[in-house]
Amino acid sequence: MLELRLVQGSLLKKVLESIKDLVNDANFDCSATGFSLQAMDSSHVALVALLLRSEGFEHYRCDRNISMGMNLGNMAKMLKCAGNDDIITLKADDGSDTVTFMFESPTQDKIADFEMRLMDIDSEHLGIPEAEYHAILIMPSAEFARICKDLSSIGDTVVISVTKEGVKFSTRGDIGTANVVCRQNTTVDKPEEATVIEMPEPVSLTFALRYLNSFTKATPLSNTVTISLSSEIPVVVEYKIAEMGYIRFYLAPKIEE
């Protein structure tokens, strides 16, 4: 028997909006520790890892570890029917081939039930080694989204270079080139507006902008984004989910011939 009750239902709505265009079908894994997902996009270039810890739910009952295969587009359609202030409860009986999403309005005067068929998805979990990152960038998530969007109107590949001066995002295309430099800036009124660069050593990597733009769909989840870079390994773009967990996107680099 699985019953997860999330008072801040809008978090689950936002999570689905941020992954439904990157991954079509995925297994949600439920265990005593929490509700998680790990899935690659169809080209195996990007991976999303989601964790919502059990403590973040008002009520978390998971009698045994189960994995539920879902079509994320359909799940997003159902969650779209939940109000932003609704409490969302996810229920599944043992051995059932459906999952039920229950939406309760804050005043409990409206209760909705949406039942979705589960799918068999054979996806293998990848081992993601803990890495020492050469540069860790923490910046306002809206700013990162704006940079990715602006640069993708000029080119389809971005070179992200981190030096002690700051971080530079560069692209080039048919109409010309673009460079955006963000300097470390910690003298801000609110901490979430700071740009922090922890850079044990300079690093420069090349990525496809369309994936980074897809990742920035998670911007509504967090005011800040953490971008961890190391030479020759995938970048991690992480959005914390308020006291519950995180959504992490991994993107393999493009290597200059």
């Binding site: 690659m40 496809a208 995938p234 393999a252 493009k254």
Partner: peptide
């Protein structure tokens, strides 16, 4: 020309 690498070159199946 930059070549896109795939993630499975970095992350092994468990």
């Amino acid at each position: 020309k930059a070549t896109q690498i795939v993630l499975t070159s970095f992350f092994r199946p468990n």
